[in-house]
Design a protein around this nucleic acid. Structure first.
Length: 291
DNA sequence: AACCAGGGGTCGT
DNA sequence: ACGACCCCTGGT
């Protein structure tokens, strides 16, 4: 991979297994939006950045080499060899083979743990456009102003201290619905116990999920998502409705419970369970499998 | 036009 | 084990 800077952009040449659509639409993130030109603009790590692809070049716009080295290299998980991961998964069975081919450019972003905690609490019993709207509202109201990009204003996701200034009613006014109380209680608990959410990456997967599910509004599925997307716990397997469908379609009996599907997948896919989940989710959702 | 069913995890009973 | 929770979408 060749990396160089040009006109407020960082250009990556010959990077394998990277497709913006696959990355931003595989269910792992909520703050990336497609633009008229097919590129994606998003807020992460307190910055606004735009990502586009042209043949074998990836353009990271509105950033520079220093930020690439300190932030975006890890954020886009560029140190991980996805070709190898896909090869291992594809050899397991024909369904993973198809799913990996289909979502060939997926990468699991290394996102902020605190932001994932709140975002996936909002995601429970909720749909993606609604989740995006609520997170946007919370950021605009309580997060720091980052700046304008292409005529739009962007705000960082609020820190625990910033979000703690909001009352339950004010949180609900951001269109969180009945999850307002979960967000309030979780934020208060983080502040009160001086929780360092980013340190959860140091825990074992099991310990990490056990700690996460102590927060109000975090059950098994949401806990799995936070661990996978915010804490690099790749040996877990969030089972949402789409993953349940695709698993029942290809692997297990129709009446298998969610915890059993999860265990089945973790036993089968092992350390790569989280990656398998992403390929299967994207495949199932884009193709409407099991609907 | 007005209404109702559907979607989607967690909590509390 | 099961209903309630919020709110937008899509169908009738």
């Amino acid at each position: 991979m060749k990396v160089y800077e040009k006109n407020n952009s960082v250009i990556l040449e010959g990077v394998a297994d990277f497709d913006p659509k696959h990355i931003f639409e595989c269910g792992q993130c909520f703050r990336w939006h497609i633009q008229d030109d097919g590129s994606y603009t998003g807020v992460a790590k307190g910055k606004v950045i735009n990502v586009s692809k042209d043949n074998d070049k990836i353009y990271l716009n509105n950033t520079n080499l220093e930020e690439f080295n300190t932030i975006w290299y890890n954020y886009f998980d560029l140190g991980t060899n996805y070709t190898e991961i896909k090869n291992t998964l594809k050899n397991m069975d024909e369904y993973l083979d198809k799913a990996c081919e289909f979502g060939w450019g997926i990468r699991i972003l290394q996102q902020d743990g605190w932001e994932m905690l709140v975002s996936f609490i909002i995601s429970s019993n909720n749909r993606i456009p609604m989740i995006q709207k609520a997170i946007e509202n919370l950021s605009r109201k309580y997060g720091k102003f980052i700046g304008e990009y292409e005529g739009k204003e962007y705000y960082a996701f609020p820190t625990p201290e910033e979000l703690n200034k909001a009352s339950q009613e004010e949180i609900r006014a951001c269109q969180t619905g009945f999850r307002d109380k979960y967000i309030k209680s979780t934020t208060e608990s983080v502040i009160k116990n001086k929780e360092n959410i980013s340190a959860y990456t140091n825990l074992s997967t099991e310990e990490c999920i056990k700690e996460l599910t102590k927060f109000n509004g975090v059950g098994p599925k949401v806990g799995d998502c936070i661990a996978l997307f915010g804490m690099q716990k790749y040996d877990t397997f969030p089972v949402d409705v789409w993953v349940k469908r695709v698993m029942q379609e290809f692997y297990v009996e129709e009446d298998m419970s969610l915890p059993k599907i999860r265990k089945y997948a973790i036993d089968k896919f092992g350390d790569l369970a989280g990656f398998a989940q992403q390929y299967l989710f994207y495949y199932a959702r884009e193709l409407g499998i099991g609907r």
